[in-house]
Design a protein around this nucleic acid. Sequence first.
DNA 1: TTATGAGTAGGTAATAATACCTAGTTTTAA
DNA 2: TTAAAACTAGGTATTATTACCTACTCATAA
Lengths: 215, 215
Amino acid sequence: MLKILLADDHHLVRDGIKMFLESEADFKVIGEAKNGLEAVELNAELKPHLVLLDISMPEKNGIEAATEILQHKPIPKIIMLSMYLDEKYINTCMETGVHGYIHKGADKKELIEGVRKVMTGQNFYSKEVREVMVSNYINSLKQKKKNLTQQKVTITKREMEIVKLIMKGYSSVQIAEDLFISNRTVDTHRANLMQKLDVKNSIELINKVTELNLV
Amino acid sequence: MLKILLADDHHLVRDGIKMFLESEADFKVIGEAKNGLEAVELNAELKPHLVLLDISMPEKNGIEAATEILQHKPIPKIIMLSMYLDEKYINTCMETGVHGYIHKGADKKELIEGVRKVMTGQNFYSKEVREVMVSNYINSLKQKKKNLTQQKVTITKREMEIVKLIMKGYSSVQIAEDLFISNRTVDTHRANLMQKLDVKNSIELINKVTELNLV
DNA sequence: TTATGAGTAGGTAATAATACCTAGTTTTAA
DNA sequence: TTAAAACTAGGTATTATTACCTACTCATAA
C-alpha cells in the first residue's frame, strides 16, 4: 500500500487527482493539504511514502514546502505538480532535489508511471517537462555565447538609487535634494551610468536598465 | 441523463473533473476537448446539454469558445471553470452570457450544485466568484468617483507617433528627421503632450502614457 | 600597506529640453 | 460651408542635460 499526501489549493483539482490516484488498487491518499503549510505539517504527522505538491499554492508554495519536507526524516518521495511549464519553476525544483516533476497536461498513464518510477528510487519528469528541459539546455548554450560577447556591467548601490529617481522623472536637482548631495554629483553618477551602459541620454538609460532588468 | 462536454487543456485536471462529475448517477461526460477549438467542434457534433469550459486554453480560450458556442443552436448551458479569480475574466464572462462561473477552488458539492442550478435555467457563480463580484462592485463605485475628478485625455495620432519615438530615447532633432518635420514642431507636440498629461518632463510623460496605457 | 573602486564635487562648454508665445495650413466633423 | 481640432513652425528665454575634465575622501581588498 503506497501512502500518498496530496497538496493542491484547488479543491476540484485536488479531489480529481485523488480519485485518479486511487483508481490504482495499491495507492491510497492518506492526506490532503490545501496549501504548503498544511502539506509540511501533514507530512510530519502522517509520514507518507510520497508527497504530490502543486507548485502554486497560498501560504507556502510547493517549492518552499518541498524544501522543508526534504529536511526532516523520514524523507518521502516528492513529485511536483504544475500547471506551468515555466523553466524557472522547473529549474528551481531541480535545485531543491525533488524526485519528479509532472505537468498537469500529462495523462493518467504518465502520472501513474511517474509515481511508480519515483518509488523505485529513480527520478521522473513528464514528457512536456523533458521537452522544456531540452530546449532550455539549447538556450543556455546560446546564452553562454551571448554573454561572452557582451561584457557584464555592474551598477553600484548609489547608481541604482540615482537610476530609480531618474526613472521617476526627477531632475538632477531634485535627486540631489532627495539624497542630500550636490546636483553635480548626481550629474557625475548619471554620466557614469550612461557611459557604462553605452547610451546617450536618460531615456535610453532607463530603457537599458529595464531591458537588462537591473532594476 | 445529462450529457456534458468537458474542455480543459490539462489532461490530469480534465480526467479528474470527469470522474468527479460521473460520480453523479445521472451525469455523463460524452466528450472531452483539450482546447477551445475542439470544444466548439465537439459541441456542434455532440450537442451536449452542458458545456464546462476552462478559461485558459490554447488555440482558442474558453471565453472565445463560449462566444462561438452561444451563437449556434441548440444552445447548451455553459459553465466556465477557472483557476483564477481575476475580475477581468469574470467580467468578460458575464458579458458573453455564459450561465455559470465556478472557481477551481470550489468543492464537489458546489460543482454539482452549480450544474444542477444552471440546468434549471438559473445562473450560478461559486462562492469565491461571488465574493470577487461584490468587491468589484464596491471598487467600481470608487472608480466612478475617481473618473469624475480626472477628465479624460485624448492623444492624437501624430502625438502618439512622437511619444513612441520619445520613448525610444530619440531627441527632438532625430524625431524631426524621422517624421520629415521641423524639430520645433516636435517641440510643440512634446509641449502639448506634457500639458495634456500634466507632467513636467519627457520621462514623466513616458511614465504617464504607460500608466494610462495609451501606448 | 597600497592600490582600487565608490562616492563625492567642481569647471567649462555645448547641446537639448522646457516655458510661453503667435500663427499659418490642413483635416475633420457639425 | 463653417467652426473646431490637428498639424505645422517660428521667436525668445530659461533651465537641464550631456560631454570631458580634475580631484579629494573613504572603505576595502590584494
